[in-house]
Amino acid sequence: MSDGERVVRGALPVGRLVGDFLGSSVGAKVIMALTGVVLWSFLIGHLVGNLQIFQAPDAINGYAVFLHTVGHGAALWLVRAALLGCLLAHIAMGMRLTALNRAARPIAYAKKKRLRTTPAALWMAASGVLLFMFLAFHLAHFTIGLVDPSSFGLKDAEGQMDVYKMVWIAFKNPVVVVTYVVAQFFVLSHLMHGTASLWQSIGVNHGVWTPVLSGVGKAIALFIFVGNLAIPVVILIAWGKP
């Protein structure tokens, strides 16, 4: 813009404003942090809802009916669409940044020490890829019913979908339990770095609040880890049939 020329309001298309931001490495970081928060919040809700498996069968089966019928069934699909959007954005930005970062150091060091970073931080891309693979399996297992069609779509005495029985049958199989247990370590690893570092990414660094926020994030990550482990492990070792 030449000297003295007035800035014309609205002269810059919104698409370019958004595109430039998303195209920058700081913008990508911010998107990863924000979509990460959404996915993290989902994990909390997902666990709290699923812990109803430890109540009478009616609790979780009724909860499933509620999720499928609230807002005339539209709410479930809206949430699914939002989560899918966040997941895709998170993956796309992560892949782009990982590719850029690899290109930024074409020749590796012969010897490199770890100074302050953590293994969880260094393995974010790897734990992310493994998480995605587990997610695909998990959806095929309990949402689409491809893994064990015989236990999918069962009905309980009240004619509701029998989530309780489906989960109990699944976790009586040690191979399935091992898969879920191993996946929880990737979840924990990914969350340990993600929840602690997201604040820095959105520009929040404070002498008092940053350690508190990181601590709370890690505590929630541990809660998710323990809770998610409990479901398959307790079912596997519990006496009796569903």
């Binding site: 970081k29 850029l100 930024a104 100074l115 302050r116």
Partner: peptide, 22 residues
Amino acid sequence: MLNRADQEGFGSCRNHFECEAA
């Protein structure tokens, strides 16, 4: 400055804080 860093081919920050230690 931050756009220039991208153009120069520097990598992006993933909050490892190795820089701070070094």
